[in-house]
Design a protein around this nucleic acid. Structure first.
Length: 817
RNA sequence: GCCGCGAUGGCGGAAUUGGUAGACGCGCAGGACUUAAAAUCCUGUUCCUUCGGGAGUGUGGGUUCGAUUCCCACUCGCGGCACCA
């Protein structure tokens, strides 16, 4: 038989579809598993060879689970709203719905050509009204829970294009389209209150099986830090300055304060400030700067002293100056800081520039293992001389010390440990212990067309009201002009205006912003459990049946945003009593990136893109699947190799050519080992070594021949990897039923054990000989045999044997002198 | 700058709790088949070597009978965050 992959693959894809082989059964009594891929954005470029990597991995796993008796939900859909379709519309005039549907059709055809075992009856499309009806429902749900609100916020604005830009459209502080400098503009925006869930999002990480680096990235994103909030009085003024600090122990070293330029107190202090013109000018300058310019670490610290304003350090009642400076961010903490130049690098830089007092209040600890272990810190010092030198530099104000240590220059706290002093000093000045988070609320409104409309209606006075559920979906109007004109394109729809007045009365109007596409993708995994439900986003019974997701596979680029948002939605539903679990994805694995053959990223402009269609056409879907799994570990970044894929194609051809005999096998040891290895490797998602084990089996079978029995079992474990070919060969062995309805073979422990093993003999840890022996051989017998070896005698002759190390079934090491 | 991940032949990569480094595949070399080539099959393939052996998993140290694996200090590459007080 020659390998006509096109014929075989087409044939079986049709049969599988006709038999509905991969349908997830809502009524089955079998145990369920929910295996999910991150659904793709159907871009105009079509499927990338990176997509099939994760898809094949979950497909192998899903098929494996079904053959092990599980009822598997394995769905696919489209993350179909987004900016590229809208940009394309602006350029070409083609409606986003039209180009998106075209792209979806391409993606669906491409994905189907890979023989993936999706239940296509559950396909979802986030841009379809029957889907975004529920995206809108989720908005209203959060709104009613008090988790959605509106406030003024800065957005990226391009003056020349007259449009708001998404963060991705801002490249190095400039507009992606015209290259103009991007500025910040205040506009009313909708937010989701994800910050309410900061602690829950943090705690939840403990109980889910996710890659540690991903958990860490989420932790850092949430950015919880422990500290104190302390109030500073202002001389002759009724308001106080509240600061957040993680280092209240350094309070005696606070020699000045800094407010963010946007801080509300600045305006209130106007009458006291004697250099108001200068201050005003600085605030104006700051507003002009983009975030990128402001946060450029390389730039010099800048700021202006608020002349005429003095604050009082509550620790020692010293009067200290107050500044505004853009290195203090309005959005974090209280937007004001106490500056301790001796113990904070940024304050130190600022103090140097403005010639401010630097008072050292913490000395580093001397070198002592006891101290370093108590504080679990690494001391950067090796000798007493080093620490003395450093301490002198610090005391002289020549160097910053940000570590822990012993207090000085702090009155009654002198000599105290800095950790202890955090509590003591906070207490003394009446401060409050506080947690602070970097996590910000999620800005969800977009001044864009191609997204789910926000279901809010305004009365003639401009007060927002939720659109009633009975009016959902609030459909995206089609009579719009996509050309950017400074507001959302929905503003141009007459029908949208008419509809609002028809439903609510004269002067009423809908919100014209749409939702961030991340909102759509924050709940799609619920919808697969009950995709056609018109009454709920998913039925209670179906949710209970399928959720949560048992395995979720996708790119690491979603480590923070998508995965955090999805967890937030799930937790909000849980708290409202709508679901009984609070983490959506029990197990997460990331796939690595597939690079071009030259080791660079695949890109059109570099002309190094591999099109999956060509690979399927020339070598077949089975070869593509197998190759992508064989390239290396799933999570690794690895380059494509046109030569390499030839290897797996040869492997497939070799299987076809195997001589299948009817003889009973002499020894099925290798088959049993292969079954065990492949089973274990699938469980651990180590597909590359599973394939290599199957190659070893086939190489052996090629030399020795293989019995029909053994070959059948081999085909079954091989089937999840190369489903079309496995099914074809299975049929050729006169089976009438699909190979995927067979149960997974068990291996026999007894047959796995080798009778003879190759035993290594080392002398002083170096391999000198090896002997064939029966397994489970005793130490004494091994030793005897080892010492009898001519090769070993050469090494041990005239030497004293100090000891012999024996490792069962592995090696013996003779230590000589 | 901070956090994380990684570095093994010519290449992609293997190596249970520390136990025979280089599985499997690609490439390459030689051979068989062929008028010839392709395909296929067989053999070899870490480097050095005076053929005894020696060196070797980014670099330098350490622990151990024994280290790709554990510890310390670096170098380089990739990813994330980035004035978060």
């Amino acid at each position: 038989m020659n390998y006509d992959h096109k014929k075989i693959e087409k044939k079986w894809q049709k049969i599988w579809e006709d038999q509905d082989l991969y349908k997830a059964d809502d009524n089955s009594k079998k145990k369920k598993k929910y295996i999910l891929d991150m659904f793709p954005y159907p871009s105009g470029a079509g499927l990338h060879v990176g997509h099939p990597e994760g898809y094949t991995a979950t497909d192998i796993y899903s098929r494996y689970l079904r053959m092990n008796g599980f009822n598997v939900l394995h769905p696919m859909g489209w993350d179909a709203f987004g900016l590229p379709a809208e940009n394309y519309a602006i350029k070409s005039g083609v409606h986003p719905a039209e180009s998106t549907n075209k792209n979806i059709n391409t993606f669906r055809r491409q994905i189907k050509s890979l023989g993936l075992s999706y239940d296509w009856s559950r396909e979802v499309n986030t841009s379809a009204p029957d889907y975004y009806k529920w995206t809108q429902w989720f908005f209203l749900f959060l709104y009613k829970q008090g988790l959605a609100y509106k406030k003024k916020a800065k957005v990226n604005w391009c003056d020349s294009c007259q449009t708001v830009l998404a963060n991705e459209q801002v490249v190095n502080g400039k507009c992606e389209r015209c290259g103009n400098e991007v500025v910040q503009k205040d506009m009313e925006q909708w937010f989701f209150k994800i910050t309410d869930y900061a602690d829950k999002l943090l705690e939840g990480l403990e109980k889910i099986d996710w890659p540690e680096p991903i958990k860490l990235m989420q932790k850092n994103w949430i950015g919880k830090s422990e500290g104190a909030s302390i109030k500073f009085k202002i001389v002759d003024f009724r308001f106080q300055i509240e600061v957040f600090t993680t280092r209240p122990d350094t309070l005696f070293g606070a020699t000045y304060m800094v407010l963010a330029p946007e801080h509300e107190l600045v305006a209130k202090l106007k009458d006291k400030i004697t250099n108001w013109k200068e201050v005003e000018e600085y605030i104006k300058e700051t507003k002009k700067k983009s975030d990128l310019q402001r946060t450029d670490l390389n730039k010099d610290k800048s700021g202006v002293k608020l002349k005429g304003v003095k604050a009082i350090n509550p620790a020692n009642n010293e009067e200290i100056p107050v500044f505004i400076a853009d290195y203090v961010l309005a959005s974090y903490g209280t937007g004001a800081i106490m500056a301790v130049p001796a113990h904070d690098e940024r304050d130190w830089e600022f103090a140097k520039k403005f010639n401010l007092e630097i008072i050292n209040v913490i000395n580093p600890y001397p070198v002592s293992p006891a101290v370093t272990s108590i504080h679990s810190i690494k001391t950067p010092f090796n000798t007493t001389e080093e620490i003395d030198k450093k301490t002198k530099q610090i005391i002289d104000g020549k160097e910053v010390w940000e570590g822990v240590g012993i207090l000085r220059n702090s009155n009654e706290f002198d000599g105290m440990d800095s950790e202890e002093a955090k509590k003591a000093i906070t207490k003394k000045v009446g401060g409050k212990f506080k947690m602070q988070y970097k996590l910000r609320d999620w800005l969800v409104s977009r001044q864009r067309y191609w997204g789910a409309p926000i279901p809010i209606v305004y009365d003639p006075d401009g007060n927002p009201h939720p659109v009633e559920e009975k009016h959902l979906p609030l459909e995206l109007p089609t009579d719009v002009d996509y050309q950017p004109r400074g507001t959302s394109p929905l503003d141009s729809s007459k029908k949208y205006k008419t509809l609002a007045e028809k439903l609510y009365g004269k002067g009423w109007y809908f919100e014209i912003d749409t939702m961030d596409t991340f909102v759509c993708s924050s709940w799609y995994y619920f919808r697969y459990s009950d995709p056609k439900n018109e009454k709920e986003f998913a039925g209670k019974k179906q949710l209970k049946k399928w959720m949560p997701v048992d395995l979720y596979v996708g790119g690491a680029e979603h480590a923070v945003l998508h995965l955090m948002y999805a967890r937030f939605f799930t937790k909000a539903l849980h708290d409202a009593g709508l679901i009984d679990f609070d983490e959506p994805f029990l197990k997460l694995r990331n796939q690595g990136m597939i690079l071009a053959e030259d080791g660079r990223k695949m890109s059109k402009s570099l002309g190094n893109v591999i099109n999956p269609d060509d690979v399927v056409e020339n070598l077949g879907a089975d070869s593509l699947r197998l190759y992508e799994m064989f390239m290396g570990p799933l999570e690794d970044t690895k380059p494509w190799s046109t030569q390499g894929i030839v290897g797996v194609r040869r492997f497939l051809e070799k299987i076809i050519k195997l001589q299948v005999t009817n003889n009973k096998p002499k020894d099925s040891s290798l088959l049993n080992k292969t079954i065990k290895k492949v089973t274990d490797d699938i469980e651990n998602m180590k597909f590359n070594t599973a394939i290599s084990a199957m190659m070893i089996f086939v190489n052996e079978a090629q030399k020795e021949g293989v019995s029909k029995d053994d070959f059948t079992k081999f085909l079954i474990i091989f089937a999840p990897f190369a489903p079309h070919l496995a099914e074809e060969l299975f049929e050729s062995l006169s089976h009438k039923e699909s190979i995927f309805l067979q149960s997974w073979p068990k291996y026999d422990e007894k047959l796995i054990k080798d009778e003879n093993i190759n035993f290594a003999i080392q002398v002083n840890g170096k391999l000198r000989d090896s002997i064939e022996v029966l397994s489970d051989i005793s130490e004494d017998e091994t030793k005897e045999k080892a010492l009898a070896s001519d090769k070993i005698k050469k090494w041990t002759e005239g030497k004293e044997i100090i000891k012999v190390i024996f490792v069962k079934n592995k090696l013996i090491n003779i230590v000589i002198k």
